[in-house]
Design a protein around this nucleic acid. Structure first.
Length: 465
RNA sequence: UCCUCGGUAGCUCAAUGGUAGAGCGCUCGGCUGUUAACCGAACGGUUGUAGGUUCGAGUCCUACCCGGGGAGCCA
């Protein structure tokens, strides 16, 4: 047995050999030894080679005795070409196959400006793995959201959905890289909880061996505990809100990216959030530029938005600004979607709204020493109408303040004893925030609805598939 | 939960209270460079459900069911 050591892979003699080496074994795979199995994203590196790709028939077009198969494999779409006079049997087979037939296709890769991607495969063999038994429900034209959502398990194969899910992957990874590079420790919060974090939002309730339990709406309180153990922590986890929201910004199950930092004050918290959002956008645009172009996202605009310093506005000033713009808001109101959109449009870049009145915010936020009616909290509003993407604050760090604020919010202390303990044993100033990953991804993609950027969105009255 | 719009062919949509239509998809035929191909033909219906008005209802009325968009709340 070879010793398991961390060594770099040997440089491949040819790209073909490298890819051959990583082929998984499969009962469906009957590869000829000399042929490189490629993924479509790598096709350009194999021009002139005979190659094999495994995937699905995405679409088919023809003109007389020439047939164009659009093949997809999850990394891209490549055109396969077959002409009847050259290969009548293959032509007959290809002409018969319906969309989404799973196939192993082999042929010569070559550049051709007439092909949609600039290169194509001159097909020599086509092995059918499974031929669909009915018409594929998702058509390559406009369909209604209800129908598409009922067929989400198939919808994700088509059109914008594939690039969006790749951007999502890049965003998740960039979030983790950002914190990993800064020495934060990834840790986890429980999903099953015995009490509400904020005491306000509606939770999903379930039976826990005869007791009531709830699905977590945020890992924050637990991250405060792990931050006292590890210093600086972060995680990405699911969050559940049972509110009957029906908007383009809401799903009942979403992924929250949270960080909690010991010895960070409000200012340091905002600086970190700004660095994070800028890093995320830069990283995702760099990695998935092609996908964003496919999605027709204006990446220059996106980069301009994040490369300048983010705007900051005091809550009171934001109210006055909105009033000047004709919005009917008064001090103490939370901002609705039109107000968030107006603020985003006014600044043309992400904007922090700082120092909310404490009456609007949950019990765990620290008050501003300069004005105890205000919380050391900020929401980050994305531009272009995408709304709030981060909510954060400096946290209460003394037992006295915490008990007083629990009481003001009419919350019992018993479920929070462990949380109060954090202020009893070496409490320190600390801050943190939660970012709605789907909201950020929606903004980065320029998508029109949050449900497009999560593989299986959960909404009120929608639990299938 | 509230406001609003809708439910007709597999899909997307038409149809003054008077015979149920088109485009796309599927099927068949034509076309050797298609780009959601195009051209021609065929196939395709218990008009969301239940009741009511009417000589006659997809259309009008009532109730219910389901969905879209938006609001509030939030990330």
């Amino acid at each position: 047995m070879l010793p398991f050591v961390n060594r770099p892979p040997e440089p491949p003699e040819t790209p073909c050999k490298r890819h051959h080496a990583v082929l998984p074994s499969s009962p469906h795979t009957r590869m000829e030894e000399s042929m490189a199995s490629i993924r479509i994203s790598e096709a350009r590196q194999h021009l002139g080679d005979v190659a094999t790709l495994r995937g699905w028939l995405y679409n088919k077009r023809s003109s007389g005795k020439i047939l164009f198969l659009q093949l997809r494999d999850g990394t891209g779409i490549l055109q396969g070409v077959v002409a009847e006079p050259e290969n009548p049997q293959l032509f007959a087979l290809a002409a018969r196959l319906p969309r989404e037939t799973s196939v192993i296709a082999s042929g010569t890769l070559r550049e051709d400006p007439r092909a949609p991607s600039g290169c194509e495969m001159q097909l020599s063999t086509l092995e059918v793995i499974q031929e669909p038994t009915g018409d594929f429900p998702i058509e390559l034209k406009e369909q209604t959201p209800g129908f598409l959502l009922d067929h989400r398990h198939l919808w994700i194969r088509t059109g914008r959905q594939v690039p969006i899910l790749r951007v999502r992957d890049a965003a998740f990874r960039a979030f983790r890289s950002f914190f990993c590079e800064r020495g934060f420790v990834a840790t986890e919060a429980p999903i099953l909880t015995g009490a509400s974090v904020e005491g306000t939002t509606t939770l999903f309730e379930l039976d826990y061996f005869g007791d009531k339990a709830y699905l977590s709406q945020s890992g924050q309180l637990y991250l405060e505990a792990t931050a006292m153990a590890l210093g600086r922590v972060y995680w990405i986890g699911p969050a559940f809100r049972a509110e009957k929201s029906k908007t383009r910004k809401h799903v009942t199950e979403f992924w929250i990216a949270e960080a909690e930092m010991a010895f960070y004050d409000h200012a340091a918290n905002l600086a970190l959030q700004e660095d994070l959002v800028r890093y995320l956008v830069e990283a995702v645009v760099a990695e998935r530029k092609e996908d964003l172009v496919t999605l027709e996202r204006d990446t220059d605009l996106l980069l301009r938005e994040v490369r300048q310093p983010f705007a900051r506005i005091d809550y009171g000033d934001a109210v006055r600004l909105l009033q000047e713009k004709g919005h009917e808001v008064t001090f103490g109101d939370d901002f609705g979607a039109p107000e968030e959109e107006a603020l985003g449009a006014h600044f043309g870049r992400p904007v922090f709204i700082e120092r909310f009145p404490v009456t609007m915010k949950p019990f765990y936020m620290k008050r501003d020493p300069a004005d105890p009616t205000r919380a050391l909290a900020a929401d980050l509003i994305a531009p272009e109408g995408y709304g709030e993407i981060i909510g954060g604050s400096q946290r209460v760090d003394t037992v006295e303040e915490l008990l007083a604020q629990l009481e003001e919010n009419k919350l019992p202390t018993a479920p929070y004893e462990w949380y109060i303990d954090l202020r009893r044993y070496g409490s320190v100033p600390h801050s943190g925030f939660g970012m709605g990953l789907e909201r950020v991804i929606t903004w980065i993609c320029g998508a029109s609805h949050i449900r497009e950027v999560i593989p299986f969105p959960r909404q009120i009255h929608r639990l299938y598939p």
